[in-house]
Design a protein around this nucleic acid. Sequence first.
DNA 1: ACCTGAACACCGTTCAAGT
DNA 2: ACCTGAACACCGTTCAAGT
Lengths: 238, 238
Amino acid sequence: MLKHADHPDHPDHPDHPDTNRPDNEGTGRRAGLDHADIIEGALALVEAGGPAALTMRKLATELGVSTTTIYWHAGGRDDIVTSVIKLMSQRLAHTPVDGTLAPDRVMSAARHVWESALAHPEVTSLAHQHRSTSLLELDLEIVLARELAAAGLGGESARNALRAILISVGGFLVLALRDESAINDEHTSHALWAGVDDPGIDPSTIESLTHPVDLHALFETTVRAVVDHYVPAQESRS
Amino acid sequence: MLKHADHPDHPDHPDHPDTNRPDNEGTGRRAGLDHADIIEGALALVEAGGPAALTMRKLATELGVSTTTIYWHAGGRDDIVTSVIKLMSQRLAHTPVDGTLAPDRVMSAARHVWESALAHPEVTSLAHQHRSTSLLELDLEIVLARELAAAGLGGESARNALRAILISVGGFLVLALRDESAINDEHTSHALWAGVDDPGIDPSTIESLTHPVDLHALFETTVRAVVDHYVPAQESRS
DNA sequence: ACCTGAACACCGTTCAAGT
DNA sequence: ACCTGAACACCGTTCAAGT
């Protein structure tokens, strides 16, 4: 599938992106383009204009290079997207978890996933479209798993707790990112409820549903409910 | 493929699609194409090949018509997508809610959202891409709201419960639909965990995380936890 | 080893023109 | 009122060819 021959470097995950530029004056190189440069440029495009702005041609002109050069260095759009996500993944700050009780610490880890995604909405959308959110979040997932382990969960019960929590966070992210790009949306849920008239629902409730929710507050109580359901309340080590 | 006729304007929202057929033999018409025919054809394309298969040109050749005819009758791709979602929305069966206790009935309504989405994964994906899931689900949302009202919730507390439940269901749907089209995905969460080695997590837990979850079982317990957190446990009126 | 231009097979959308 | 072909401005990707 990937057929840009034998390229010596071209690493799968650039562990620390090379920012130093080895000077290649006098060699056959013309543009002196690096894999890392391309991914950085791609990331810039995404952060500036969303996933749709990441175009082979835009990226090429941005870098002052022809489209096909991109293919040689970094593969097709799919490969580039994967690399962008990996790059962002390692840039996600590993803020330490806080709290002393196990559920507090697990909640804190879950909040890290939520907040780091909100800090980079465009890349998160890109990852979501590319079906590789967990590639973006893996390090945060590991932090969460550690807290679950410290809380005394293991094996299947740890797995179920982890997945349930991440799925809940994911649900909130979908909505948060949808509202982010809400210039056009006239069929959001609260907009649609404005046209509802149902005898089984009292008017004050319908009125309430007409307004958007405070997502952050709802996140706290809902994800907390999920955490409390899966994580026993005794104290945690560490 | 039914040939309908005389659709004077192309309405923005066909509230109930005209199925009656005024005959127009002898007019200048060639194809006798109807708005409803187009939307039906679009729906067929989506269900057969997913959201990406819904293409103006494919739809046109499918209907034996030129691309521009589609525009005349039904507008651009965006309008067609909206119409497809509205069509599917009214086709979603209103299975009656069961259970006698309030949380059971609310849970049953939530399950309807989940199951009717799973029954039409491609259209659900389309709605999700188009950021109009709630357009697809509105009737099911109303059913859920009725049960919350019957459970004694109103105003903001009803709204919070409704949103929290729908967000949780949405999180599960994202994952379920992602796994649906999992021919390529080598960076799903459980695939990525195969490469993790962390001293803070015991090996049996990591091993567990290597395998996919039983989403249906996890749905039941997790959404139930959310429902129980928001819905008081006293009995509900019918 | 690195980079290019041209070309292919697609998109959505518009518009002058036909009947 | 209805339908068409041609054209525009985009896509991702491939490939022979240059240095």
